[in-house]
């Protein structure tokens, strides 16, 4: 049985206090200072009433908001939950939260490590947060690369698809350093018109960059 090739059904870019979906600006807040403030106003814009959001660290909030906007008009219910996979990447891992945790343990007279900070020192927690929110129980992978690498993500997702592991995939890049944040997520499935390969992903990433 020959499968359709995977396509890019929709994509979302979050950076510079703007959220762009499929090339269209859908939300902007130039008054927000920093990721924390911007993620909050972006969240309020969609009013999802999801209290777990407020417990997340900044980079997980970024990933969460990007996935909210990406999937706003998408019906994932036509898939079985175990056929929905998430494959993400970045260069910083969770360095901002790592430094927060480090600060809480560096002075032995002022030692206050917190489990609610420590748990966010793993980049795949972002995958966990997206998976819980959208009931996605398929494959997971988090890759660390110096710069966005479309080929790495496309190749991994295509391999999962060709070996019948999953039917639909969130792929992309969610990165946050002290002075900069950026999330680029896309949904790959058999629907859509753009072929799911490294050069198409690279093109979309660059246009929206």
């Amino acid at each position: 049985m020959k499968k359709e090739a995977l396509k890019i059904e929709t994509y979302c870019m979050v950076k510079n206090n703007r959220i762009v979906v499929d090339g269209h600006l859908v939300f902007e807040d130039q008054d927000a200072v920093g990721l924390k403030a911007f993620a909050k106003t972006a969240y309020r814009h969609l009013k999802p009433s999801y209290n777990k959001f407020f417990k997340m660290d900044e980079i997980s909030k970024l990933a969460f908001v990007a996935a909210e906007f990406l999937l706003k008009d998408v019906n994932l219910e036509k898939y079985k939950s175990e056929e929905l996979s998430v494959v993400l990447s970045n260069s910083e891992s969770t360095m901002v939260t790592d430094k927060n945790h480090q600060q809480s343990i560096s002075d032995k007279d002022n030692f206050f490590p917190s489990p609610s900070v420590f748990v966010y020192t793993l980049p795949n927690i972002m995958i966990g947060e997206i998976s819980i929110r959208h009931n996605m129980k398929g494959d997971n992978a988090f890759f660390i690369v110096e710069n966005f690498n479309a080929d790495l993500i496309a190749n991994h997702i295509n391999n999962l698809f060709l070996t019948n592991k999953s039917s639909a995939f969130i792929g992309g890049w969610v990165n946050y350093s002290d002075d900069k944040y950026e999330a680029f997520l896309y949904l790959a499935s058999e629907s859509g018109s753009i072929l799911h390969n490294a050069s198409e992903i690279e093109k979309i990433f660059k246009i929206n960059h």
């Binding site: 939950s81 175990e82 998430v86 489990p115 748990v119 927690i125 995958i127 966990g128 947060e129 998976s131 819980i132 959208h134 009931n135 996605m136 129980k137 398929g138 494959d139 997971n140 992978a141 592991k165």
Partner: peptide, 11 residues
């Protein structure tokens, strides 16, 4: 080989 998410709890 395969992986899967519980989609239940982060910790």
């Amino acid at each position: 080989g395969a992986s899967a998410n519980d989609a239940n709890h982060i910790s």
